[in-house]
Amino acid sequence: MILHITNDYSGSTVYKNLVRELDNNGVEQIVYNPFREVSRMGKNKINFKSSRSQIIYSHILSKYADRVLYQKKIKKIVQDIEAKIDLKSVRFIHAHTWYSDGGAAYELHKKYNIPYIVAVRNTDLNLFLKYFLHERGYGKKILQNADKIITISAVYKKRMLEDPRLSHIMNDVQQKIMMIPNGVDSYWIESKVSQRKIVENEKKIQLLYIGKFDKGKNVFNLINAVKNHNHKVQNMVKLTLIGGGGNDEKRILDSIKNDHSFEFVGRVNSLPVLKSYYERSDFFTMPSRAETFGLVYIEALLQGLPVMYTQNEGIDGFYDDSIGEKVEDTSVSAIERGLERLIQKRDHYSFDIGKFSENHDWKKIAEAYQQLYKQKQ
């Protein structure tokens, strides 16, 4: 039995896709999902083929205290797991984040000697390691006791290897670090285009953004970069925004009101409708401040669109620079320069769409994880 500890299971389909593929391969799994918001209960359910597999939704986390009192949160999660799961049946733990999930995996490992792997994501490097100074020593123990350390992106592996805060444990953990990317929904692989989209000269450039309207996604600065560019070059760019919600939504919607350079669509749940927006766009733009991977970049590339992304975040380093433009920072001026490069170099991007479908197929990714589980079973 594999135990997944994942605080964000009900918040993202990434975990569901992996768990479903593992289930297709006959892996017995318990998915343990502690969460804060009661609205998460029951989200991303799976009809398992394996009768012993299950998802345990646990509304045990408080909205405020558990964000700050890290050790208390870990203790609460461990006690809840012990109360709800027969740990004698668990052979391996997959902790889907380093700090929030990995802390619980480490405590269970100490008590029950169950091996575990831990994944490193955006909040681990950009929040916990950076600001939770008092928990850095504990974070290092999580890594040192893990069987493997998975980074979802190439650039996060590079950042860990070069981080001076981790340098004195790197001899212990360097060989454990491996990169396994996220996959995309099979719809995008099945409906991929055969070649890159060619952007005609002298036409209005259509940009696309898909995602939440959180401050971390940096949509507000993207909007201002488009405004600045259009001020200089007579409204040559139009940005379509799909998604919404998040802590920056009001500011974003206020900033584009009555401006014809922007189209706000809202949430789109239909994948064919989403595909139609990719088809009418020239570039996908998401210069996030922090991004574990960013599946929408891969969706866009599978639809033949070059992408704008951020240096040292997301897909940076996984593919070479011919997939689009990376901005050196997330300021309005850097994004504006990135837009100018996208438009100037519109004919010069080249990428292998078949390679994207090969690298981001959940079936293959599930097999890679299965190999890691089997090593200790």
Rank of each mutant, 00 (worst) to 15 (best):
R280M: 08
E162C: 07
V193R: 14
L208R: 06
I335M: 06
L125A: 08
K215F: 03
H96A: 03
L127P: 04
K43Q: 12
D361A: 10
E313R: 07
G137Y: 13
Y297M: 02
Y138L: 14
S333K: 14
V118I: 09
S357V: 01
E313I: 03
L61R: 05
E313Y: 06
R121K: 13
I205Y: 08
S12W: 09
P34L: 09
E28N: 14
I323F: 08
S10W: 01
V237T: 08
G246R: 04
S12H: 10
S276M: 07
S186T: 15
Y319W: 15
V233M: 13
I256H: 02
N224A: 02
D329W: 03
Y349M: 00
H4R: 09
K141L: 15
I223W: 08
T151C: 05
K45H: 13
D66P: 14
V155H: 01
G304N: 05
Q303Y: 03
I343Y: 01
I177T: 06
R20G: 05
R159H: 01
Q174A: 11
Q175N: 10
L161G: 07
I198A: 15
P287M: 00
P115N: 07
P272A: 01
T292K: 09
F92S: 03
L129R: 11
E263R: 10
N126K: 11
I93D: 00
V327A: 01
E28P: 14
S255Q: 04
S62N: 15
I2G: 00
E263G: 04
V120P: 04
V193F: 11
S333M: 12
E325D: 10
A105D: 00
R337K: 13
S58M: 02
Y70F: 13
I169R: 00
Q303V: 01
S357F: 05
